[in-house]
Amino acid sequence: MTRSSRLAVAASIAAFALLALLLAWQIPSRHVKGDPGPHALPLAVAALVLVGAVAALIGEMRPRPSGEEPWQQALVVGAGTVAFLLLLPVVGFVTSSALFLVATSLYLDSRRSITPVTRLVTGVGFPLVLWWIFSRLLDVSLPRGLMGF
């Protein structure tokens, strides 16, 4: 990743630690004699993360060689995963999974090496098999859509 990405990540960790430190400060300190209380460990580790992240941030200020690794496809697949998660309670497990599998594999398979039949069988068949295993065999209730699965 580029230097600016590394700087952004270090700054985000520092901000997260600072927020945790402020919240840990507000944890009530009710405890028995000797016990440092429920706020002690969160305070200590949040401070450690903050110091470490600030040190990492300072370290990132110094120029050093950075190799650029591809990440664009992960961004699209990550966005697809979030969309799948949002659709899951709305349209049900089978429909959302089928949409996710077909769309993502179409995107990743730029050379079209997967035949339409394989894509359809995997995209629809796999979620159906999983739905059957979890709902019928393992008795786990998966989110249902309009069609009942």
């Binding site: 697949v77 599998l101 999983l130």
Partner: peptide
């Protein structure tokens, strides 16, 4: 197919 299957 592997990444979407693993995520699913």
């Amino acid at each position: 197919l592997m990444p979407p299957l693993v995520i699913l």
